[in-house]
Write a protein that binds this DNA or RNA. Sequence first.
DNA 1: TTAATTGCAAATCGTTTGCTGAAAG
DNA 2: CTTTCAGCAAACGATTTGCAATTAA
Lengths: 150, 150
Amino acid sequence: MKPAHEVFFEYLKDNGLNMTPQRLVILQSFLDMEGHFTSDQLYRKVKKHDPAIGQATIYRTLKLLLDSGIADCFDIGDGVSLFENSYGQDHHDHLICVRCRKKIEIVDEAIEKRQEQIAEEKGFNITNHRLLLYGICPDCQAKAEKEEDE
Amino acid sequence: MKPAHEVFFEYLKDNGLNMTPQRLVILQSFLDMEGHFTSDQLYRKVKKHDPAIGQATIYRTLKLLLDSGIADCFDIGDGVSLFENSYGQDHHDHLICVRCRKKIEIVDEAIEKRQEQIAEEKGFNITNHRLLLYGICPDCQAKAEKEEDE
DNA sequence: TTAATTGCAAATCGTTTGCTGAAAG
DNA sequence: CTTTCAGCAAACGATTTGCAATTAA
């Protein structure tokens, strides 16, 4: 499989867009990020390499990354978009702790299959989906019990 | 099962909150709404009964409705919260058309069960969940085909 | 040369909050 | 009386946009 940056380069070329130093720095920082992150977290990482880059450029470039297919974006209801590097990754869903906001990725073939069936029954042509399971993680359950003792 | 408005009244009493004419109008309008709606849509309905009520009161009362358990809220990634009357309703998930934004409710026992299993495996204590299936609805598929012919 | 791109600041938009007067219990 | 509430306008915070200057091709 061709590397992620190449996919992005080709995307730019195919759409008559230019490669710029800013886009390169953002792309590299993006690929270096781990797990889920906000636009602002990426912005802070980018600033370390080039402090002159502005927030707007981050937002604009994130849109290109999404469009080129190497990034993915979702919203867990906190009013912020979460991004991740999705290139070459299996689709996954998320378990989210409502207390500490920890996120755990899950992959489940059975659910994926069933979703497709449902969509088909309704005549929908599914493009993507999002499954969010909210709950209390083991750590926070332990903490909650401790607090009750006090 | 006791009626929704009674649940709300008791919720207020149990929490030392007052019943007010505004809250009553908002409650009634809320119960009259169909399907999913935004805070603003509820606001417009409320205004017909009492034009003096402000947006802030709608937001504050919606929070009480959520808290009392008769309302539910979710976010499909449009930057607006969607509310619905959830009292006495089965949990359901949503198929969302990415073209016309139509929303179809789905209920699927198999997926619900599987989710619980996954959560248990990870030691999570699930409080709620959200499944969003994005795709193109039959109507929009037909429209898209027509457009291609042109 | 010329269309694309940047950074900045101002604009958006949904939602929240501080404040002051009014009303509920 | 003593909270709780309401309405208003201002504040907020994430994201977008207009603009004038700069740069890639």
